[in-house]
Amino acid sequence: MLIMNEKIKASEVRLTGVDGEELGIVSRDEALALARELKADLVCTSLLSSPPPCRLTPRGTAKQTAAKEKQQERKAAQPAKVKEIRLTPHIEDHDYETKRRQAEKLLASGDAVQFVVKIQGKEGQRAKELLEQLLKELAEVGRKETGIQLSGKQAAVRVNPVQ
């Protein structure tokens, strides 16, 4: 939570200037007067110490910074989306390159990718080789979460982005 200007209740504050210079311990009224004079906001950075540390920031930037931090926290709290990319064992080179580039983009943007290769008959080994080749080429941007799973009619592997 952001406490600024008149909402600061302490009688004295440890003040830091706009450029980061230490201004020492001053009364709240003196700090508010200085903030008005410099067309700045007085922002309390912590309530845990006495007197509370406060800093002068250009007007409006404190709220913007707090909003950005809140947005970043919200974004980080969301689980990574898993995007599925489907292939066949007999994929053309051009199509393979397109799927690989698509996976690179998804991994770079922070999403996980699930590769699924549809299998018919005895194509299991070919599907496994295809997935291993993809994993090798995507090693810089993604790491496999699971091993290659062959089951019935498909082979699958999940790749997470590298942080």
Rank of each mutant, 00 (worst) to 15 (best):
E140L: 14
A80W: 00
A33D: 14
V18R: 08
R143I: 11
E30H: 11
Q125L: 12
A31I: 04
A103C: 12
V13Y: 08
L135A: 13
Q163D: 02
N160H: 07
A35S: 10
L48D: 10
Q102F: 08
K144A: 15
L134W: 05
D93T: 04
L38D: 05
L138P: 04
K7A: 13
V157G: 05
A62L: 03
Q71F: 09
D93K: 10
G60R: 12
R36V: 04
A112R: 15
A31Q: 02
V26K: 14
Q102N: 09
S46R: 09
G124T: 03
G60N: 07
Q102L: 14
P89F: 07
L48P: 00
D111M: 09
K153N: 14
K118V: 08
K136L: 08
K144F: 10
Q163G: 03
L34S: 09
V141Q: 12
E97M: 09
L134E: 01
Q125V: 11
G20R: 12
Q125C: 00
T146D: 07
E69A: 10
V43E: 14
E22Q: 03
E92N: 12
R126I: 04
A40L: 08
R100A: 08
D19A: 11
S151Q: 13
C54G: 08
L106M: 13
R14E: 15
L48M: 04
R59A: 12
K70F: 14
E132R: 11
N5I: 05
L38Q: 15
L130P: 02
Q149F: 03
V43M: 12
Q120E: 15
E97I: 06
P52R: 06
S49V: 14
V26E: 13
L15D: 08
G110K: 01
G121M: 07
R100H: 01
K63T: 13
L107W: 06
K81H: 10
S11K: 13
I91L: 14
E132M: 10
F115K: 05
K81N: 11
A77V: 00
L42W: 06
A76P: 01
D19K: 14
P58Y: 08
T65W: 04
Q125P: 01
Q154M: 07
E97F: 09
Q102R: 15
E22T: 00
E123Y: 01
E140Y: 06
Q125H: 10
A66G: 00
V159P: 10
V113F: 02
G121T: 03
V13K: 10
E132G: 02
Q114Y: 03
R158A: 05
K83S: 12
K39R: 15
V18P: 00
Q163R: 06
L47K: 10
Q114D: 10
A80Y: 00
R126N: 03
A67H: 07
E6L: 09
V26R: 11
K81A: 14
T45V: 15
D41R: 04
L106Q: 14
L106E: 14
Q133M: 06
L135T: 09
F115G: 07
G152V: 00
K68S: 06
V162R: 15
R101S: 07
D41P: 02
I8K: 07
L131G: 03
E129D: 09
Y96T: 05
A112F: 05
G124C: 00
A155F: 13
K128W: 01
Q102G: 01
S27I: 06
Q114P: 00
E22R: 06
R158I: 15
